[in-house]
Design a protein around this nucleic acid. Structure first.
Lengths: 138, 138
DNA sequence: ATCCTAGCTTGGACATTGTCCAAGTCAAGA
DNA sequence: TCTTGACTTGGACAATGTCCAAGCTAGGAT
């Protein structure tokens, strides 16, 4: 993730301790955390960091394309540090666990011109739903 | 939509004026409304209907499989009355407009066994993103 | 090394979306 | 027509996110 900090600094990002901590938290476990979870982990390292800063920083990272925002339910958005490798998500309908998955082919190929309604299409997100081994076995 | 009301009645649904109005609103325009938008339209026909009832009724319709819940952003969920025809969504990144689209093939076919991690997979939702003709032309 | 200042952070108020509950109301079967 | 359990209501509450004025600081300028 020092790569990330380096990239951001060359883009004029001011490198504060708060931003460093948020970046470290995201890089620490490649897991899909909510903003509040990121805040909770950040507080462990920098007790006075505020919720507002975490929200700000996450928003900036998303804007810079370093982190993806994932909305798989109507609840809190989750933040995915794996923005530089195309992937999709597999979500457990039982416990909400999320895994990165890599389907074959390009989903855009499945959408014929006649189904594009004049849109300039930039991408596709796929959410596979199912039950994880734990939830399925009960 | 009287089909829908009929189906629900045979399943023991008590047919109240509130539920009828919510069902009519959803059926009226085949558009993806938020709960609050449904409430606003319902109030036009039945001024004393409460927000709680709209939420309850939408939740029941989703549970019964008559309406789909769509979460394309982190904001309010949207409700899709087109639950009986498999389809996906195309969302304008500019104005948020949503269209139903029908990609070719089954998205589940693109996910090899080795990428399923023992999940019992039940379905896939695809959100295509792009700019609608209006937003792209500016 | 020190200073300056634009940009960052903070805490708290506020907004949006959704859930819950006790009390009152009503659809539909008897 | 009566009865009753299911439905509805309004308002309190919860979860998530946004905004702002005031103070702080990273990092370039001196």
């Amino acid at each position: 993730m020092s790569d990330l900090l380096e990239r951001l600094r060359t883009r004029g990002w001011r490198l504060t301790s708060q931003r460093r901590v948020v970046a470290e938290v995201l890089d620490g476990e490649h897991v899909h955390l909510t903003a509040d979870e990121v805040h909770a982990r950040a507080v462990e390292r920098l007790p006075e960091i505020s919720r507002a800063t975490v929200y700000n920083t996450l928003g900036e990272l998303v804007g810079l394309g370093e982190v993806l925002e994932v909305a798989t339910d109507g609840r809190a958005k989750r933040y995915d540090p794996n923005a530089h490798h195309a992937h999709q998500h597999l979500v457990c309908s039982g416990c909400g666990a999320i895994r990165d998955v890599h389907p074959q082919g390009d989903p855009l190929d499945a959408l014929p011109a006649g189904e594009r309604f004049g849109f300039v299409i930039s991408g596709a997100e796929i959410t596979y739903r199912g039950l994880c081994p734990d939830c399925a076995g009960r």
